[in-house]
C-alpha cells in the first residue's frame, strides 16, 4: 500500500513538471495581460496616471464613427466571405473524395497551395494584381472591357470585394483539408451504396456529406468567425484600410489608435474587449445552432 502511495505521488509530481512550463507561459503571456487589459478598459489616462472611468470607454466606443465603420466592415467580410468559402471548400472536398477521380493529388495540392503563402505576401500579390497599373486592369483594357484602367482600390465596394476575393483564395484550401480529413473517417461504402440506390451527386452531398461532416463544419465556422473578426494583415497591406476607412478592420483601427499618435490604452482595451465579446457570443450561438439540429 505504502509503495503504491509513493508511486502515485511520484506520478503526480512528474505530471506537474511536464505541465509547469506551459502553464507558467500561458499565465504570463495570455491570462495576466488579458486581465490587465480588462482592468485598463475601465480606466482612463496614460502611464502611471490612470483613473477609474467606469463604462465611459465602452460608451465612447459606440459613438466612435470609425470604430463602427470597422465593425461593419468585419461583419460584411464575415457574412459574405465565410459562407462562400466554406461551401466552396465543402464542394471541393466532396469532389476530391471520389476515389475514381483522375489527378486527385494534383488538384488537391493546387487548391491547398495558397496556404503556403504568408499573409502579408498574398495581400501584396492581390494589391499588385488589382492596382490601377496592375495585371487585371491591363487584361481588361486589352480585351476592351474597360476603356481605361479602373482604380479598384479607391472604390469602397470594389476594395471590399477584393479583400473578400483574396480571403477566399487564401483560406478555401485550408478549410478543404479539414473536410477531406473528416471525409476519410466516413466509410466509403456509404457513398457506393448511395450511388447504387440512384442518388444524384447533389443528394449525396446534402444528405450524406454535410450531415456527417457537421462537427467539422462547426469547428471551421467557429475558427473562420474568430479569424475574420481579428483580420489585420490584409487591411493593413492590401487596401491600407482605404479608401478612407471603408475597408479597415477592427484590429487595424485598434493598432492605429494604440501605436500611431497619442495612445489611450483604456480606450483601445475597451475596443479589444468588444471583439472578445463578439467572438464569445458568436461561438456560443454557433455551438447552440449545431446542437439544436442534431
Amino acid at each position: 500500500m505504502k509503495n503504491k502511495g509513493n508511486f502515485a505521488q511520484k506520478q503526480n509530481r512528474s505530471s506537474w513538471i511536464l505541465l509547469a512550463p506551459a502553464m507558467v507561459l500561458i499565465l504570463m503571456f495570455s491570462i495576466y495581460p488579458a486581465v490587465k487589459a480588462l482592468i485598463t478598459s475601465f480606466q482612463t489616462g496614460a502611464g502611471l496616471n490612470m483613473q477609474w472611468a467606469g463604462f465611459e470607454n465602452y460608451a465612447r466606443v459606440f459613438k466612435d464613427k470609425t470604430f463602427i465603420q470597422s465593425l461593419k466592415n468585419c461583419i460584411v467580410y464575415l457574412i459574405i466571405q465565410v459562407p462562400i468559402m466554406l461551401v466552396l471548400a465543402l464542394v471541393l472536398a466532396s469532389a476530391l473524395n471520389d476515389r475514381k477521380l483522375k489527378c486527385r493529388g494534383l488538384f488537391r495540392t493546387a487548391v491547398f497551395l495558397p496556404c503556403a503563402t504568408s499573409l502579408v505576401s498574398y495581400a501584396i500579390i492581390f494589391r499588385s494584381l488589382f492596382a490601377t497599373d496592375g495585371f487585371i486592369n491591363s487584361i481588361l483594357v486589352n480585351l476592351g472591357v474597360l476603356d481605361q484602367p479602373f482604380n479598384f482600390l479607391s472604390n469602397a465596394t470594389a476594395a471590399k470585394a477584393i479583400i473578400i476575393i483574396a480571403l477566399i483564395w487564401r483560406w478555401t484550401g485550408y478549410n478543404m483539408v479539414f473536410y477531406l480529413a473528416g471525409l476519410q473517417s466516413i466509410d466509403y461504402s456509404v457513398y457506393e451504396a448511395a450511388k447504387i440506390d440512384g442518388a444524384t451527386p447533389f443528394q449525396t452531398f446534402t444528405r450524406i456529406t454535410v450531415p456527417l461532416l457537421k462537427p467539422t463544419i462547426l469547428m471551421t465556422a467557429i475558427m473562420s468567425t474568430n479569424g475574420t473578426l481579428q483580420l489585420f494583415d490584409e487591411s493593413v497591406n492590401l487596401t491600407f484600410g482605404g479608401p478612407g476607412t471603408s475597408t479597415m478592420t477592427m484590429s487595424h483601427y485598434i493598432y492605429n489608435q494604440a501605436f500611431m499618435g497619442v495612445p489611450n490604452f483604456g480606450y483601445t482595451s475597451a475596443m479589444a474587449f468588444i471583439i472578445l465579446i463578439m467572438v464569445a457570443i458568436l461561438a456560443f450561438v454557433q455551438l447552440k445552432v449545431g446542437e439544436k439540429d442534431e
Partner: peptide
C-alpha cells in the same frame, strides 16, 4: 477567444 489586440498593449 482572447483577441491578440487585447493582449498586445499590456
Amino acid at each position: 477567444m482572447v483577441p491578440f489586440v487585447a493582449l498586445m498593449i499590456p
